[in-house]
Design a protein around this nucleic acid. Structure first.
Length: 174
DNA sequence: TCAGTGATTAGG
DNA sequence: CTAATCACTGAG
């Protein structure tokens, strides 16, 4: 794999605990509102892992909203939270194993709701196929980042075990 | 610290 | 139909 190459679905059809840390340092290529393209290095993500993870939306089972997480990896899971903020997630893993990676920060922009505002992400990106999309995809960069881990944000409802999983990954220097 | 904001979901 | 909940942000 060489820098600039689009990550294909094989990259995403692996366990979310492998994919999530490897997404740090990769680039998101996105057609911004206005039509120009932007490249942003991913600096912070979180892993949501399957039906047993009480912090994962799919722990309540298959619903219209969570349906795409049961698809094989390489699609986008996009949803609105608090009535205002679109969340950008990448589906990972095999079919029928619901997993996703939340994109929390990219270079120079922190916060999942601010990123989607910058990118112009909305409901029309739900289910977007990262293999063939002409408006958003991920690229390899050759960067091998030094990672830090922490607990996931905003999931206190998930119970002691799940809220303490170290499944947030971020660049040391950001 | 806290309101804003509306889709989603379970339940009657 | 109702009502609770929410993977957040910016203002004060």
């Amino acid at each position: 794999m060489f820098p600039g190459k689009r990550l294909s679905k094989e990259f995403f059809i692996r366990d979310v605990l492998e994919v999530a840390p490897e997404l740090i340092g990769k680039n998101i290529v996105i057609r911004l509102p206005g039509g120009t393209f932007g490249r942003f290095q991913v600096t912070e993500v979180e892993a949501y892992r399957g039906a047993e993870d009480n912090a994962c939306h799919a722990c309540k089972g298959r619903t219209p909203r969570t349906e795409i997480m049961f698809h094989e990896g390489g699609r986008l899971y996009v949803y609105l939270v608090y009535g205002m903020y679109w969340m950008l997630n990448v589906v990972t893993g095999e079919e029928n194993i619901p997993q996703a990676v939340l994109i929390r920060s990219v270079e120079n922009y922190s916060g999942p709701g601010r990123i989607t505002k910058l990118f112009g992400i909305d409901r029309t990106f739900y289910g977007e196929n990262l293999d063939i999309s002409e408006r958003i995809w991920f690229e390899d960069t050759g960067v091998i980042p030094v990672l830090k881990t922490g607990t996931r944000i905003g999931i206190d409802y998930a119970g002691e075990y799940w809220k303490t999983r170290p499944w947030r990954y971020y660049l040391q220097d950001t």
